[in-house]
């Protein structure tokens, strides 16, 4: 059951991720990215990380991608004109990606430490949200406050950047 869900959502996620590379229209890229993020949220749920899955749908598939689509609409981006492909750059890109993939698969498949099956969780399960809240406000309260400051400064920065004239 879990294995079937993993294969289904992982395949779907990778197919949509691949279509971001291949599709020419930025709106279809953004929509396949949304689908990829939703499948990723489902993968988080198969890993018993329900809170992260919900956050993924809310923040990424919701807020961030709406922002992307809004900017695409605002700039009125058309389909990318098919210019002459820079052959060297394309070849270099494909080579870098292929080298990364081959090294990664070799490392992961050769190390027996990564071949472990899913360990069973112990005892009565406390709810995921409760455990995350306890960890967040016990051990990570300072980074949490810093994130607040970061979001505020990002907001101020966006307002300054999007004024009509930069002084």
């Amino acid at each position: 059951m879990l294995l079937a869900a993993f294969w289904f959502f992982a395949t779907l996620m990778l197919l949509f991720g691949l279509s971001v590379v291949l599709l020419r229209n930025p709106v279809s890229c953004a929509m396949s990215l949304v689908m990829s993020f939703i499948c990723l949220a489902a993968l988080y749920v198969t890993l018993d990380a329900t809170f992260i899955g919900v956050i993924q749908v809310l923040v990424y598939a919701g807020a961030v991608m709406v922002l992307f689509l809004f900017i695409i609409m605002l700039l009125d981006l058309r389909e990318e004109k098919s210019r002459r492909l820079n052959f060297g750059a394309t070849l270099g890109g494909v080579l870098v990606v292929a080298a990364f993939l081959s090294i990664m698969t070799q490392v992961i498949l050769s190390n027996p430490a990564f071949a472990i099956p899913t360990p069973t969780l112990a005892g009565p399960q406390i709810s995921d949200v409760k455990m995350i809240g306890m960890t967040l406000f016990h051990s990570f309260w300072l980074p949490f406050e810093v994130i607040g400051v970061l979001l505020l400064s990002a907001t101020v920065g966006v307002v300054v950047l999007s004024r009509r004239t930069l002084r």
Binding site: M13, L101, I108, F114, I116
Partner: peptide
């Protein structure tokens, strides 16, 4: 049950898609 390697390879392939 999927193994850890399954998830890591899925994550690596997703990273490769982003890199591409």
């Amino acid at each position: 049950m999927p193994t850890l390697a399954n998830y890591l390879i899925a994550s690596g392939l997703l990273f490769a898609a982003g890199l591409g």
